[in-house]
Amino acid sequence: MNPLQTTIRHAPTGPVLEVNGDLDYTSAGEFRALITALTLQPGQRLVLDLTGLEFCDSSGITAMIVARNHVHAADADIALAAVPDHTLRVLRMVGLDQILALHPDSEAATRP
């Protein structure tokens, strides 16, 4: 069990949220609350930097869908950076790789 830790920094494209640890049934609620509290301007991009993501279950996948719905409601966009293989496999299985932009790292994800 790795506790979830998040860090927010701001890039020209919008907020970048670094996600470390486990995004699972126990931590997904807190993560969803954090995301939905973010205010985005139209045209901004929320980047989830998943370099430090250790584990992601279906609750974590749901949290990513919540994040997507939240930014789209603000006419903003979402991108995932540095998705670990284990989570990438799940994203492909459920088809989310088609609706969430994936980037190899946060630098690529924050290019305007």
């Binding site: 996948i61 869908i65 492909r92 459920v94 088809g95 989310l96 088609q98 609706i99």
Partner: peptide
């Protein structure tokens, strides 16, 4: 492959 989660 590529089938999306239902309801998203």
């Amino acid at each position: 492959p590529g089938g999306l989660l239902v309801g998203v």
